[in-house]
Design a protein around this nucleic acid. Sequence first.
DNA 1: ACTGCCATGTAAAACGTTACATGATTCT
DNA 2: AGAATCATGTAACGTTTTACATGGCAGT
Lengths: 190, 190
Amino acid sequence: MTTLGYALLALLARQESSGYDLAQRLKRPIGFFWTAHSSHIYSELARLEEGGFITPQVVAQPTRPAKRLFSVTESGLAALRTWVTTPIEPSPPRDELVLKAYAIWLADPAQAIALFRQQEELHTARLAEYEHILARIEHEHGKQLDITLPDFGNYATLHAGVYAEQASVAWCRWMVEQLTNHSRQEAEQG
Amino acid sequence: MTTLGYALLALLARQESSGYDLAQRLKRPIGFFWTAHSSHIYSELARLEEGGFITPQVVAQPTRPAKRLFSVTESGLAALRTWVTTPIEPSPPRDELVLKAYAIWLADPAQAIALFRQQEELHTARLAEYEHILARIEHEHGKQLDITLPDFGNYATLHAGVYAEQASVAWCRWMVEQLTNHSRQEAEQG
DNA sequence: ACTGCCATGTAAAACGTTACATGATTCT
DNA sequence: AGAATCATGTAACGTTTTACATGGCAGT
């Protein structure tokens, strides 16, 4: 089982869906921390079906092409429940921006500042988006959700996003500060 | 050019190295945010050499097998300098723990608490490690490093790590709090 | 004697992205 | 008329991991 497989099971455990539906539903909020292309989704669905984790139900539609609605089997739900609390084996980190920071001493300071300002704006925008959705959830449910409801899942992931984006914004600001301080000192001395 | 290619160029720009050296040097601090297996490193080195970004110099050793020390060419350094400040195209996010949180409503609360406590410990340990290295750097250089020195690259990446780990720890604590509050309420009512 | 380090790669498999292919319907 | 949506996949490509292959030296 791949992680995408579990992501699809998690979606199907909430509601039966077609491959197309899943591609849509994967965008928000899962898309904030896990993404997949539709071609990948379809091949993964085939594997899940082959493994007996999901079953299709063909639904004919009058005006639209027929679709295959998938639902989670008992075996699929059991696999999902097991996976959810299984400790994570650390996966290889990938952060290109930090890699650039590692080599930033080679760069022109002005260009470096531009890079981190742009990144700061990007993360600030994301932060605002997450907080907006979070506010909607809290407006509906309050700040203490029932953890056995699917909406708690959304609430939890959005909190993760808020913490992560706040950290990114803070780091970008720190970088800009370091780079501008240095440039100012250069100017004063030169 | 792949991102690993730039990572290797960034290392070689600091000091010429063999493939084996690079595998070692990649561990810290780059390994905190980008990793690669040695086989991957060797194939990437071959591509960089073919592209004229690096040149090897064979060094015979009396007791050890001969090694090929690579250094960055002018073309390689130019490519690296360009890449460093080029805006990042967003890469697909991958965070399995957040995915689990999305499906946590299906889990046994006690097991869920155990998962997030374990993750909190892991991130706390990493945070301590980063802060320790950071303290060493600040002891040597102070808190305002010259941004044109390679050490500023290390300083910057470690700061990124500190911000990110602090955010992870905070989120894990928030999750544990949510899950334990709920369990307590259950107990009071039941 | 055995483990770990130094040193370099090849080959196969798994994973993920991009491009391609098809075709009707609904909205602007 | 054209763009977007609904709907499902195949094929090719590139990247990354895992396994394999080799072999001497140094430390316990």
